[in-house]
Computed example of a mutant assay.
Amino acid sequence: MTTTTPSSPIAAVIFDWAGTLVDFGSLAPTQIFVDAFASFGIEVTLAQARGPMGLSKRDHIRSLLAEPAIAGQWQARFGQPADEADIDALYQRFMPMQIAKVGEYSQPIAGATTTLGWLRQRGIKVGSCSGYPRQVMDVLLPQAARAGIAPDCVIAGDELPAGGRPGPYMALANVLALAAGDVRRCVKVDDTAPGIEEGRRAGMWCVGVSLSGNEVGLEAAALQALPASERAALRSTAEARLRAAGAHYLIDSVAELPAVLAHIEQAIRDGLHP
């Protein structure tokens, strides 16, 4: 943990992982949901798989099974609605597939390591949480660390008895672990609506990440290859969803975060609260 003398009124910044710090486009989880359901003979589109992103993976599966189109397929194939045992079976199928794939998507998003360095220079503590379960994070973390992504705290999606997003629990677990002191001086950075809701419920400033995250869901090269008008339309749609979830600020990617944090620092000095 950093020991730099604090020079910022911000106590801590708490990041999501896929689509925020690593894995531009949040690609690692999405196809695995499609593949896991396909192994049970159920067709799930990439768009459907992205819908509940940000939830813990078991809750994500539960949410997908509640989708009418997917629930109807399950009923037709198995003769009854999906129950907890079916959720468990899908989760057990999903987990080894996700563990095998997550390392392929551990590359930092451009600007992430620079932003983390900027935070540490200012004495701001760096937390993180993820919808990934601990088994998946245990694969991702060492690879990300070798690339320069090593937060002071990591909370996985299956670690807390209270549950995960959109509840505030993982964000608040970071506050406790980091001894951040005041949630009003903490910032949550996330590319999903449940992750923004998490930060709002925890009483934090919230920054939504649009282009690099789940709401757009494209690799950096594929996004850059689009005409400017298409990128602008994708940004606008993503921003609308994140704003509706409660984001105070919006950025394209983590590379733009320091400029936004400067505004939040001034707001705190002016006595404003999230």
Rank of each mutant, 00 (worst) to 15 (best):
T45K: 06
A179M: 12
Q98H: 15
E159Y: 10
A179I: 11
T114E: 15
V136M: 01
L27F: 04
G54Q: 04
A89W: 05
A267H: 06
A89M: 12
H263M: 14
P81D: 10
A259Y: 10
E265C: 11
P168S: 06
V187R: 02
F37D: 04
A179C: 11
R165Q: 08
A18D: 06
L211W: 00
T2D: 08
L250G: 03
G199M: 06
A47V: 14
F37W: 03
Q92H: 15
D191G: 03
I149D: 01
R184I: 12
Q92C: 13
Q75L: 15
D182W: 03
T5Q: 11
Y105G: 01
L160Y: 03
V136R: 01
V34L: 05
A193T: 14
A76S: 14
A173V: 11
D88Q: 14
A232C: 05
R201C: 07
D152L: 05
D86A: 14
C186D: 01
A179S: 13
T45S: 13
G246P: 01
R243N: 09
L242A: 05
L116G: 00
I109A: 05
W17M: 08
C186Q: 00
R62D: 12
V260G: 05
P227T: 12
E159L: 13
A221G: 11
P52L: 07
S26K: 09
L257V: 07
Q107G: 12
